[in-house]
Nucleic acid binder design. Structure first.
Lengths: 272, 272
DNA sequence: ACCTGAACACCGTTCAAGT
DNA sequence: ACCTGAACACCGTTCAAGT
């Protein structure tokens, strides 16, 4: 099988529980295993094999260590995955204008994220530009880590990097000029869209990689299968009108125009 | 743990492989086990225990049968979950105007779905009304079955009911007046939004059920935790401006206005 | 045609024990 | 302070066997 598992629903989050080890730096012998290496190896494994290919035992083997050693650093597999999740959130490059106080960024380090957020070099720009940047960065990270959506769905995503991201997203939307009581709606529209879009895009790419075919090959194969199955005149007509000769082009067009729709909607309803 | 598992990525879909059994009706002894009952029990278990609480062995026990009996009817756990996924898609009530040819509906039955699509009683209406209906129906089903998003992310979702749903969604959007080459974008914006929105809404509700608290209780608890953690003036201001005294009210407001934004965007860009 | 039981290769995690 | 090995309770699935 591919999803689902046996133990009970987790009731806690890494971010809501105490650190397992004080994690002081100048310790005696550097044994070659620590939080950073473990999370990095976790992400490498997840990228390469997917969530279903990941197990604590596989990870230990990857680290050249016995199955249970990892448990000295990490409470459960769930906590480890939450760390990987927040590390991925940290890869979303945010417009510098949207990143708030230095304290927020400092607290990222304080709770032990793997890497801080990256910041795109940018001068202050239009809120639309900033929105487009955050959206497409988020999309890129979702595609790069196809395991991310499952974790986003499973855990609370209140890690330090997630908080920075959410604040930045909110800051950008506040510049749109929408009244305060509409901001959460607009945020939901844009980011849930990006989430869903990036999810299927990343999954499709991963599927192609696993099957050893190009995206265009798999796309045409699937279209063929579906067309064989039933009458699809309407759908086919739309698909052909979609434009773009490659899957990548179609995706970029769809993504860009969908964002344009959302932005146009915001601008239109702002005036009312 | 809660997600991920051990076996390799599935390369096939129920919908792309042959039926295991010819499934003829007038057989000798009715043993009390069949496709319908199995899928129904699966959905009941998933609703009650979640994806992580579901296993072939639990299901067999639920059916009062030995662990391996189910395998006579169903090839793998993955295939069974695909059947449950499409059955859930069939619960989305579609506006009768948007449901195409009778053949499409006929083919639903032909491939053995659990129940056909429901059709809301409706006279022909504005495309905006239809869009709102499909969106909120989709949302309702996502909330009712919190395991649905994980399955939607994992499998191809090309079952008969999914095909009917997609065609209906497309038919509605075609009535918006957008040019053909923009339809897929608009569909992505609306349905990925609903998917993401319904996902977190359903997950939140499930979490409350599991913890035995009301949604409002958990919401305030979480707000408290997050506020304690770091400076959150902006976010708090927005949250307070959000309006609505209960979580449910906030969610309904957010959902409705986000859809309004999308519709306004479609209408605005349609004119250009 | 339908169902069972034993077995296999995997899990996450606990726990006592090593150094 | 860090790592190991054996063990427990669970998986999905195969396979030979029952009726």
């Amino acid at each position: 099988m591919a999803i689902g598992s046996r133990t009970a629903r987790p009731r806690s989050s890494v971010w809501l529980s105490e650190r397992k080890a004080p994690k002081r730096k100048g310790d005696q012998q550097p044994v070659g295993l620590d939080h950073l290496k473990i999370v990095a190896a976790t992400m490498r494994l997840l990228d390469a094999e997917g969530l279903s290919g990941f197990s604590m035992r596989r990870l230990a083997a990857e680290l050249g260590v016995t199955a249970m050693s990892v448990y000295w650093y990490v409470e459960t597999k769930d906590h480890l995955l939450e760390l990987a999740l927040d590390a991925a959130m940290g890869e979303i490059a945010l417009p510098i204008e949207a990143v708030g106080s230095i304290e927020a960024v400092g607290s990222v380090e304080a709770v032990g994220s793997v890497e801080g957020h990256e910041y795109a070099p940018a001068e202050p720009r239009d809120w639309r530009e900033q929105l487009r940047q955050v959206a497409s960065e988020y999309r890129r990270v979702l595609v790069r880590h196809p395991w991310l959506p499952a974790l986003l769905g499973e855990y609370l995503n209140i890690g330090p990097n997630a908080v920075v991201f959410n604040n930045a997203a909110l800051a950008v939307m506040r510049n749109s000029g929408l009244p305060d009581d509409r901001i959460t709606s607009a945020l939901a529209l844009v980011y849930q869209f990006v989430y869903g879009f990036g999810t299927i895009e990343g999954r499709f790419a991963a599927r192609c990689r696993a099957a050893g075919v190009t995206q265009d090959e798999l796309f045409h194969e699937m279209m063929g299968t579906v067309e064989d199955r039933m009458e699809f005149d309407e759908a086919r007509q739309i698909m052909e009108a979609r434009g773009g000769s490659t899957v990548e082009e179609m995706q970029d067009r769809d993504f860009t125009f969908a964002l344009d729709l959302a932005i146009a909607g915001i601008e239109t309803l702002r005036e009312r």
